[in-house]
């Protein structure tokens, strides 16, 4: 039997439906798991994403032809039956289920199994073949409980505020930043944002997602009267001249990579919070178990190691060959 999906130099392709999933070169029809830049690229003739993911994709890619689909809704594209299912990664993120002649394949996109109170929670989808990311596919990665993390972040902020210092918190603009917003305790002080993050906030608010009030830092912002505020910014921003205006400040990053001491130290931050929008080791294992799949393709991250682990547990495990891997396992967490 022919494979439902194949791996081409443009990305994952479905011959029966003549569409690509998260392609990185221009194609006729692109199904997108979510709006992060390593998945949603410009130049496709047409796009399909969930209705929740679409506004950000439109904001990021500009004038594109995009059709939307609800979670669980089934559509026929050529000889393939497709549906999108919650991946729990960022608002609107999806796993894409593709069925051809009774064979079911699922592309996970990026996912996390823990409910974050912002994205629609991950739902396992039964399938024959599962294509899974494994960004954090090593047993060292175990995410702390969200409550413990909330305390840790707010304690750090409160201590800085008490010392009259700003708190610079670096995180990705889409997903992680809004998740942090839901964890912050606004009674500690004002929450300011970098323009890149505020723009995404605005898109999400406009589609009805509730976020605590934030204020963008602009040229004339009176920082004196906001001493002790927390500033949410992209991960690169604390190291740029943009951050000089805050004077006395403490810097922290929120990322799964903050698990590792060496990376925390290399980032040179005062604090590292272990907060990821990807599945941790247990999350990957439980998600794969729940699919009931016999064959698993792994991509993103520690693929060779994770493949071997799956193989030892009886899976037909394969690597989506590196030529098709969108990004290297780099300390700058894949977004």
């Amino acid at each position: 039997m022919a494979d439902v999906l194949t791996f081409t130099d443009r990305g994952i392709y479905c011959p029966a439906g003549e569409f690509h999933i998260d392609p990185w070169c221009p194609v006729a029809r692109a199904l997108l798991t979510h709006g992060h830049s390593d998945h949603a690229r410009p130049g496709m003739d047409s796009y399909l994403s969930t209705d929740i993911a679409a506004p950000v994709i439109r904001y990021r890619l500009g004038d594109i032809r995009i059709d939307t689909i609800r979670y669980g809704e089934v559509r026929q594209i050529g000889g393939a039956q497709i549906s999108f299912h919650p991946a729990g990664h960022v608002p609107g993120s999806a796993q894409i289920r593709v069925e051809v002649a009774g064979q079911v394949w699922v592309v996970s996109g990026d996912y996390k199994t823990e409910a974050d109170g912002l994205s629609t929670p991950f739902e396992p989808v039964r399938c024959h073949v599962f294509i899974s990311e494994c960004t954090f596919g090593l047993p060292m990665f175990r995410w702390p409980a969200q409550d413990a993390l909330r305390d840790q972040i707010n304690r750090w902020w409160a201590a800085n505020a008490a010392d009259g210092r700003f708190s610079l918190l670096g995180s990705y603009a889409l997903g992680k930043a809004q998740r942090l917003l839901t964890l912050l305790d606004p009674t500690i002080g004002p929450i300011l944002t970098h323009g890149a993050i505020e723009a995404t906030n605005a898109v999400l608010r406009a589609q009805g997602i509730t976020l605590p009030p934030t204020e963008q830092v602009v040229q004339g912002t009176d920082l004196k009267s906001r001493t002790g505020a927390l500033i949410l910014c992209p991960p690169g921003a604390p190291a740029t001249p943009w951050a000089n205006r805050f004077g006395s400040s403490s810097t922290a990053y929120a990322s799964g990579w903050m698990t590792l001491r060496g990376i925390r130290r290399r980032r040179g931050a005062d604090m590292g919070f272990v907060l990821s929008d990807h599945a941790d080791w247990e999350g990957l294992n439980s998600a794969i178990r729940a699919t009931g799949a016999e064959r698993v393709y792994v991509t993103h991250g520690y693929t060779a190691t994770y493949r071997r682990w799956l193989e030892e547990h009886g899976y037909d495990a394969r690597i989506v060959s590196t030529a098709f891997e969108g990004e290297a396992a780099d300390p700058t967490e894949s977004a």
């Binding site: 090593l138 047993p139 060292m140 590792l260 060496g262 520690y302 190691t305």
Partner: peptide, 20 residues
Amino acid sequence: WLLEESYAVAGDLAETIALI
């Protein structure tokens, strides 16, 4: 072998052990 692979990434045995 999985501990060894993890160690190769973390670069510190005590840290690897504490984490796994």
